[in-house]
Every structure is written in C-alpha cells, then in structure tokens.
Computed example of a mutant assay.
Amino acid sequence: MVQAMAALGGKLTKRLVENLGPGRHGDGAGLYLVVDPSGARRWIVRVTVKGQRNTRGAPLRTDFGLGGADVVNLNQARERALEYRRMAKSGLHPRFHAKREVPTFEELSRQVHLDRLPTWKNPKHGAQWINTLRDYAFPKIGRMPVDAIGQPEVLMCLSPVWTAKHETAKRLAQRIKTVLDVAKSAGFRDGENPVTGVREAEVLPKVKARPEHHDAMPWRDVPAFYAELETRSATAAKALQFTILTACRTSEVLGMRWAEVDAEARLWTVPAERMKGGVQHRVPLTDEMIRLLEPLRALGFDYVFEGQRRHRPLSNMAMLMLLRRMGRGQYTVHGFRSTFRDWAAEEAGAPHEVAEAALAHQVGSEVQRAYARSDLLERRRELMERWGIAIAQ
C-alpha cells in the first residue's frame, strides 16, 4: 500500500497545475502537464512498451493523452499514468489495452474547446463555439456518456431551435458532430455520426434561408448626408465619414491605429488578423480621407478613432446610433459598402475585379486567386479618389 502511494507522488501540486505557464512540466515517471500558449492544460504520459520496437528498430516510446486538466485532476492523471506504465512494462500497448472511462458529452466538448482555442481567429469565436453547446446541448445531453448519444438525442437538441433559430441550429449541429467525431477518433464511439444520420434522413423540416440584406442608402443621397456629417464634430461622425469613403467594415475602421498608416505612401494597411477573410488589406488614402485624418493625428491617440475611454476605440454601436439620431435609422453602417458597390457599377463603370478588391472580397477560384496576386492598388486608388470627389463635392 505504501509503495502504491509513493508511486502516485510527484513534483507537481494542485496549485502548480493551475498556475504554471506555457510549456511541458514533468511530474515524474513520464507524466507531463502540457500548457499551451492559449492557457489550455492537458496531461500526457510517455511510456516505453517492453519488447516492442518502432520502424527504425528502437524501443517503442509513445506519448498518450490523458485528458484536459480541467476534467482530469492531478491524482487521476497519476493513476492513469501508473496504469499505462504497468501495461507498457508488461509488453501491452496502452492504446489497445487501457481501460478508460467514457467521458460525458460536456466533458469531451470542453476538452475539444480547449484543444482548438489556439486555432480560432480570436477569443470571441472560441467563446461562441462552447456557448452554443452550453445553451442548447448541455441541458439535454451534457451528462450523457458520448457513446450513448444517437439520433434521438441529437434531434432532442436540434428540434426546438431548428425553425426558430435556424442559423444557430446549423452551427449547433456542426459542433455536436465535431465532438462526436473526436469521440470516435479517441475510441469512445463506433459507427456513423448520428448528426450525419439525421441530416441524410431529412427528418427535420426544410427551412428556406432568408438572405440577409444590409439596408443601404441610395448613392445619390450620400453627398447630402455626407455634407450633414461634415457639420458635426463628434468622433462618431468623423469615423462614419471615413467608413463611407473607404467602404471598409465597421470593425476595420474602429480598430485602426496610427501605426497602420503610412502618410508618405498614402496608404493604410489593415493587418490580416483584423480582416474578415484573414488576408491583409491595403487601403489607398485619398485627398478627402487625408483631410479627415490630419486633425485626428494631432490628438496623439493610439487609435485613430478613440472613444470616451482612454486607449480604447470608439464603441462599435456609435456610428449606428449616430445614424438613428440623424433620422436615418432605416440604414446601417455596413450598408454603405453596398452603396459604394452600386455607385461603382452604375455610375463609375468600374471593372468587377477592381470594385470587389476595394471591398476586400475574394474573387474567382482558389487557383485563379493564386495567379492573380496583385491587389490592384493603383487602380483602386483612382476609383476611391473618384468616389471621394462624388460624395464630398
């Protein structure tokens, strides 16, 4: 008994497990806590299987995942590691002989969430992923073992929201499917994924997708509206003017920093991590844009359009609320991108690829884009100059 207790001792403590920084931290006897840069924590054990060799003839040494530290505590990790070492010492491969408890749907979902956090574009996406499961799946199947979930359980989650919140339901289905796919890969399930079965059986009603339109101000009305904005000194008004001139998205404009602006080259470069498509976007700065920016630079802020809180950008609702106060509540800020696109086609006669590039839209197939490497900057500069003259006349 004393020997068994000693075997479960190690270098790590509960506090260290919770607070250690990124890296691989050894507990001893092949057990490690791995902390990712994102903060996700998981256990692995390294064992050498007696009498078995790898393809190069060396002793077979293998790492095995024991689960996330939020699901498997330190003592449980040590017990599992001890089990794996005993099997390996006996010549048994743990992958085929380990007795593992089947996790619940919620336990595995949270582990999948932690494992994928580093791959998401920003923390908000990660939060949305797990929150969808938390709100619509965990109350119904969260405590069920993943090997007990079939089509009836999937339908129990999807049916209440399938028509009322169809986009949410589709995302929910995809996330349930991902968790169950991981469960199968980990050896906890067999057979077809029940989400696939539900889709193929078409047991849920067909929902006609309603296209989402951003109400756009007619381009012929923009000059008068722009002139009205010019009479206002609020930062929100200047940000909206700049948004209209650049045809950029709200988040791109509000996140704009002076470090992204090259005044000499008359260029604003939006980094890839702030772009919807994940690709860097260069925006040519026209005379009218520069006229708007110059007084703001003198304020010495980090963000071009700083909000009421120091070192923080303007609220993402500020421009929309301004539209409503000005009696244009039927329009949206995003709609000005459509306004620009209509003007580019109807009035400017701009080539399709130039107008789409101005909106940072990807055009053509992946192969076509690989050959068309230019972002048509100078042609876009000419188009944006014409747009600025048209609306700020």
Rank of each mutant, 00 (worst) to 15 (best):
A98W: 01
I244K: 04
G23R: 14
V198Q: 06
A7Q: 11
V203W: 07
A227N: 08
K165W: 06
A236P: 04
F138P: 12
W258R: 03
E230D: 15
L31I: 03
K170F: 01
H93A: 14
G191T: 07
G329H: 12
I149C: 11
A216H: 05
D262W: 01
G255W: 01
E356F: 05
L323M: 12
Q128K: 08
V222N: 03
R232F: 04
G388E: 00
F96T: 12
T62K: 15
G255C: 03
Y32M: 04
M317Y: 07
L8I: 10
V283D: 00
A186I: 00
S38H: 10
S159A: 13
R380C: 12
D147A: 11
L82H: 12
L245N: 00
R15Q: 15
K14E: 14
D221A: 13
E101G: 09
L229I: 02
F301E: 08
A345I: 13
T332Q: 10
P218F: 13
L20T: 04
A272R: 11
K89T: 04
L172D: 10
L254T: 02
F242A: 00
F301Y: 11
E260M: 11
T104N: 01
K238N: 07
H214E: 07
A345C: 08
G39C: 13
R56P: 02
P313A: 06
F188I: 04
V34E: 14
A370I: 06
R61D: 07
W162F: 04
G187L: 07
G26V: 06
V354Y: 05
K208V: 15
A98M: 06
G150S: 03
A169R: 01
N19V: 12
E106N: 05
P103D: 14
F138L: 09
A7F: 01
R85P: 00
Q151A: 15
W258V: 09
N316G: 02
P160Q: 14
V222F: 05
L172H: 09
M321C: 09
P194K: 06
D181T: 12
V270I: 15
W387M: 10
R266T: 03
M144I: 10
G67S: 03
S233D: 15
R110A: 04
F96G: 13
R56D: 07
A390K: 14
A77K: 08
R297C: 00
R291D: 14
G30P: 00
T332R: 08
P351Y: 04
F305S: 01
E353A: 05
A88E: 05
P37G: 06
R61Y: 05
I176V: 15
K184H: 10
F336D: 11
T269K: 09
H125F: 01
E366R: 14
M289L: 12
K165H: 14
L180Q: 08
A350M: 15
R171Q: 08
M319R: 07
A186D: 13
A127K: 14
E212I: 14
R232Q: 13
Q151Y: 03
D27E: 06
